[in-house]
């Protein structure tokens, strides 16, 4: 197709938006409703994600090493159990004999995948941490704690595999973790992700149906024009282009207006419920979210505009468009 034809048809497409202005307003309105819902879902999702990151940071696993105390006071040690005779414990019964060896084990853990931070602690430091939770039959002057490391994970969704990896490190005796918290946070994140995808998918389909409908109405309004176009030798692409331009334009107008509406909605949300879900974490600023959301809107508008118009006009041209007498 010649450049001047493209220019002419683009102009025709723009003109059509005005000529069919009632239908255009209706389409923009419904498209906007979809886009605003998507925008709000995205921006709430971003805030929840940020809040989750804050929660994740608090999620730390305590890894205890296989030292003398781990043999002397095993994890399943109970108050009624008989104490092990210390003279029976030999050096080869445990791996970590001093802090240097303990730090070496911590370094090995640090090198594993999905580890954000490892902080080594001595058995004395751990004892200090436990001072309020002493086991009843252990006297104050006895340190039953083991040395170990405070390990922070990067991605909680990979919790199980990471723990498995830590367990395999030589010198690791026991891992104390709040895996329930990890599971809950992970489930919330997964749930939000899945719900978000479904919401966006459904709204995308609705947008597509709306654009298809607008194009169909426009097309039937312009049957005469199409029949004349075909009679004077217009190609399918020539007939199709103004509709595609019209679809894209409706999508773009909807995207711009939706961005404005989402901005005002977010301002209201910031004053109402967003702070309560964020806790101590700062909410996402609209400025940082605006560009990705606008990009998403434009993509939705353009994709639904192009696909909608191509589907509808191709269907029409295949069925009856080549028979320009079908107008009668």
């Amino acid at each position: 197709m010649k450049a001047r034809s493209i220019k002419y048809l683009t102009g025709e497409g723009i003109k059509n938006v005005w000529v069919n202005r009632l239908m255009s307003i209706a389409s923009v309105g419904v498209l906007m409703a979809c886009m605003v819902l998507i925008g709000i879902a995205v921006i709430i999702g971003q805030n929840v994600n940020r809040a989750m990151v804050g929660l994740e940071k608090q999620n730390v696993v305590m890894v205890y090493f296989n030292d003398y105390n781990s043999v002397m006071y095993p994890i399943d040690f109970d108050a009624d159990d008989e104490m092990i005779d210390p003279s029976t414990i030999t050096d080869d019964m445990y791996v970590v004999h001093n802090d240097e060896e303990g730090k070496a084990v911590a370094e090995k853990i640090e090198k594993l995948d999905n580890i954000a931070e490892v902080e080594y602690f001595t058995k004395e430091e751990d004892m200090q941490r436990f001072e309020d939770k002493k086991i009843s039959n252990i006297t104050d002057d006895v340190n039953f704690c083991s040395c170990g490391a405070k390990v922070t994970l990067k991605d909680l969704s990979r919790f199980d595999e990471t723990i498995e990896g830590i367990e395999k490190v030589e010198g690791v005796y026991h891992i104390s973790s709040s895996d329930e918290t990890a599971e809950i946070i992970s489930a919330i994140k997964d749930g939000l992700g899945t719900a978000g995808i479904w919401i966006i998918a459904i709204l995308l389909i609705i947008s597509l149906v709306i654009v298809c409908n607008t194009i169909r109405v426009t097309m039937y309004n312009r049957k005469l024009e199409i029949s004349i176009m075909k009679a004077v030798g217009a190609t399918d692409a020539f007939v199709r282009l103004p509709f595609v331009v019209e679809g894209i334009l409706l999508g773009l107008i909807s995207a711009i207006l939706s961005e404005v509406v989402v901005y005002f909605c977010y301002r209201v949300m910031l004053e109402t419920f967003i702070p309560s879900i964020m806790g101590a974490t700062m909410p996402v600023s609209f400025a940082s979210a605006a560009l990705p959301i606008f990009g998403l809107f434009v993509a939705i508008g353009v994709v639904s505009g192009v696909i909608g118009s191509v589907i509808m006009i191709s269907k029409y041209l295949r069925r009856e468009g080549s028979e320009f007498k079908a107008y009668n």
């Binding site: 005469l224 029949s227 075909k230 004077v232 030798g233």
Partner: peptide
Amino acid sequence: KRKQVPMLRRTMGIVFQDFRLI
């Protein structure tokens, strides 16, 4: 072929009974 039809129609002018003006 169907895609060649526009080229054929460009060699002819058609006058309709009902004028078909836009």
